[in-house]
């Protein structure tokens, strides 16, 4: 249980970068870090509880978070157009 708690604390610390980040790219970097830590957290919870279906949730996170981040960065690069 200790690794999960440590990972949640790290997640909260790195989510502070979303709130204070001066530019918008800093905020996107923070969102990326939070999502990757959340994936690790889900795998750890699935491993400790021996529940395989939580892994499906984490796979969905990984793939769909990718699509969302790529769309966001393309939107900002194109000055508001895709």
């Amino acid at each position: 249980m200790l690794p999960i708690l440590l990972l949640i604390i790290l997640l909260l610390i790195s989510s502070l970068r979303i709130l204070i980040g001066p530019t918008i790219w800093d905020r996107m970097l923070g969102l990326n870090m939070v999502s990757s830590k959340l994936i690790m957290l889900l795998v750890l919870i699935a491993s400790f509880r021996q529940q395989t279906f939580i892994l499906d949730v984490s796979l969905t996170y990984a793939l769909l978070g990718f699509i969302g981040m790529i769309f966001m960065s393309l939107y900002i690069q194109g000055k508001g157009r895709f």
């Binding site: 989510s15 979303i18 918008i24 969302g68 966001m72």
Partner: peptide, 20 residues
């Protein structure tokens, strides 16, 4: 508004974890 979109992304990630 674009900052609000990023905050909502983080919000939806945390709330999915809470559901779990």
């Amino acid at each position: 508004l674009r900052h609000a979109v990023i905050y909502l992304g983080a919000f939806s990630m945390s709330i999915a974890f809470v559901y779990l």
